[in-house]
């Protein structure tokens, strides 16, 4: 029976898309498209949820970029989901650096106009190689659950939703391909729910994401 409910994982996935890791140069603009989601067992076959979003990033200065994206899969389910964030450089070395993202997911249901807001913060470490074109990175994300109660006034027990990310970007000219492996919501027990997430120790879910970006 479980296989008929796999799409319920939709928004867990959506709250974990590929973000800006290194600030763009001032005035630089980037268009992005993402595909990916949490990994699930589907009749014994491991799959990742093929969820999509499109977005754009722009360099405000050499140290600060802003980013916005619309989650198109959510839109197909009549939910407008907007992600907005700012990326700032914290420390920059010769081939590596630390950056931070401050952002939020804003949801609005189009069936009933119910709003939800999930702020998050990321700490990123990136490392360039191959003459500074490609880079690998590691991120820690902490998303906040602002609601104290779930359905039927049941208490929300996990107010912090953490993710770990290991990623790589291949950069060629103005194009950038990305691959990310995530460990989503690793503080949450994933047993006895309708979706069979793939993760170690019955906690959270692994996620697999692909991205393409074009710089202008």
């Amino acid at each position: 029976m479980h296989r008929y409910f796999i799409f319920l994982s939709l928004f867990l996935a959506s709250c974990a898309s590929i973000k800006t890791v290194e600030p763009l140069k001032k005035g630089e603009v980037k268009a992005t498209a993402d595909l990916g989601g949490p990994m699930i067992n589907f009749n014994g076959i491991p799959l990742f949820m093929p969820l999509t979003s499109i977005g754009s990033a722009m360099g405000i200065s050499d140290n600060v970029s802003v980013f916005a994206s619309i989650h198109t899969t959510s839109l197909m389910y009549k939910t407008f989901q907007l992600e907005t964030s700012a990326n700032t450089s914290l420390f920059r070395f010769d081939k590596s650096g630390f950056s931070a993202n401050w952002g939020a997911y804003t949801f609005c249901g189009l069936r009933e106009s119910k709003w939800a807001f999930y702020p998050y913060a990321d700490i990123n470490y990136y490392l360039h190689y191959n003459n500074k074109a490609h880079f690998a990175y590691f991120s820690f994300t902490s998303m906040m659950e602002l609601h104290r109660k779930k359905a039927f006034d049941e208490p929300v027990t996990k107010r912090i939703i953490p993710h770990l990310t290991l990623g790589h970007r291949w950069v060629k000219d103005n194009s950038e391909w990305g691959l990310e492996l995530k460990y989503l919501s690793f503080n949450k027990d994933n047993r006895n729910i309708v979706v069979d997430y793939i993760a170690p120790g019955n906690k959270g879910s692994f996620g697999f994401y692909l991205s393409y970006a074009k710089k202008f």
Binding site: L12, T79, G109, R111, A116, A151, S185
Partner: peptide, 23 residues
């Protein structure tokens, strides 16, 4: 089951309204 919304909140791990994906 408690409600369709609880299914949804269990699966997503966050307290989103069920009406986001279903009637």
């Amino acid at each position: 089951f408690a409600s369709a919304e609880v299914f949804y909140q269990d699966a997503t791990g966050i307290a989103l309204p069920g009406s986001y994906v279903m009637e």
